[in-house]
Design a protein around this nucleic acid. Structure first.
Lengths: 220, 220
DNA sequence: TCTGACTTAGAATGCCTATTCTGGATTTGC
DNA sequence: GCAAATCCAGAATAGGCATTCTAAGTCAGA
């Protein structure tokens, strides 16, 4: 009596258990999360749990799928038709993700936890890459809009910029996992975003302060 | 009869076993690497292994320390007095790291594997953060030199740029762990490096191709 | 060559965890 | 209210793994 992730996801009664399990896997990783933990956190009976999902791996697959869909929706709705402009939308959605990470002291569920599982199961690691590509292409869409509005740094293409954003968020996740603070991570993300944007003359005053020897001349 | 990581590191006979174990932990992670694996890979007797290190955790600590020192040396020697200029040195050392990662389908031993162990042991996660800071400050040093030579993007400080580089490399590691290819990762890193450098007029031709409507005017 | 310390290979131990089983409780359909 | 199906809690089961033990083998020094 094996059940598939899709079936589990479509059952409204399983939404709460899946979310509880997601929280555990996200915070603790796959190996470090025991079925006992899941039983306690969901309040679900062990027997019922095995009946509903089939086993630990299948449960994780359902969690992963749920995360995938949720995250895809988040990015798609935020970036496909951004009200306050594409760059603002990217900032908003990314800062939301950073908050999620620092709240949990964890990175991306797909990229970090699923990668752990991907060692056994090639299908999982392929799913992770497809997730990354999905998010990247949403970012690329937004950056293409930014480009049309002249808000993208001319030195890069929307595609390159999107890849950079993804890598930066993954890096932020790695740092969150190791205990870096929210403020530090936001600063880091802002640096990335600043470089992605079209350079403005106003920014050069930073340089003046930093290296007066060569740029002490007033620039007003 | 407990031995400490420092003692193990100073014994030349243990260098080879430590390197073999490092390879295993790096590729497979901490939990996924059994002592049996280590026994096979090092050719060392189980008893001798326990005598030399004390246990699995202590072995990993020795591995971690070895990686730390090795990596610190790599960055320090490459970046403290770079012959071909600071930006070239950063590129060189980073590309070396990317090769190490793609060779193993893994990220950074400290940031990824040690983070796994850091869940049990606070001292380990603090060590990871101190490692990150060490590398970041080496990058910052190089970027400060670049700044003095007018090679740094005026929109950012050496400190910000160094943090961005670290995050980018961590992101690259996360992607390598999930099976991304070397070429893709090099492209990604190059984008990052391009943005860190001082923008040149020549780059704007990229933009012309992408968005002819607004920049079709010849710019030579 | 002999002795005593050290090393080895592999078996035993003990713990932890996923999964299954079981006998009793609870719900459901009528 | 009742029979049948379903669900529950916790006890077995089974396998994996770190760590320790053991009994035989090896080596160094005289």
């Amino acid at each position: 009596m094996t059940h598939h992730a899709e079936i589990a996801l479509s059952d409204p009664l399983l939404i709460a258990p899946i979310n509880a399990a997601k929280e555990l896997f996200w915070r603790q990783g796959y190996d470090e999360t025991s079925i006992e933990d899941v039983v306690c956190a969901t309040g679900m009976n062990r027997y019922a749990l095995y009946n509903a999902f089939g086993g630990k791996l299948e449960l994780f697959l359902a969690v992963m799928e749920s995360y995938f869909i949720e995250r895809k929706n988040l990015f798609m709705t935020a970036l496909s038709d951004p009200q306050g402009g594409p760059m603002a939308a990217i900032r908003e959605v990314s800062e939301y993700c950073i908050t999620e990470m620092t709240d949990r002291g964890a990175g991306c569920l797909m990229c970090d936890v699923a990668a752990e599982v991907g060692r056994y199961d090639k299908a999982v690691s392929e799913r992770v890459l497809s997730y990354l590509e999905e998010i990247r292409s949403a970012d690329e869409m937004a950056l293409a809009q930014a480009d049309e509005r002249g808000e993208l740094n001319p030195a890069i293409s929307p595609k390159e910029g999107a890849a950079l954003l993804i890598a930066n968020m993954l890096g932020v996740g790695a740092m969150a996992r190791n205990g870096a603070g929210r403020k530090e991570l936001l600063t880091l993300f802002n640096t990335c975003l600043r470089l992605l944007g079209r350079p403005t003359g106003a920014q050069s005053h930073l340089r003046k302060r930093r290296n007066p020897k060569t740029t002490a001349v007033k620039q007003i």
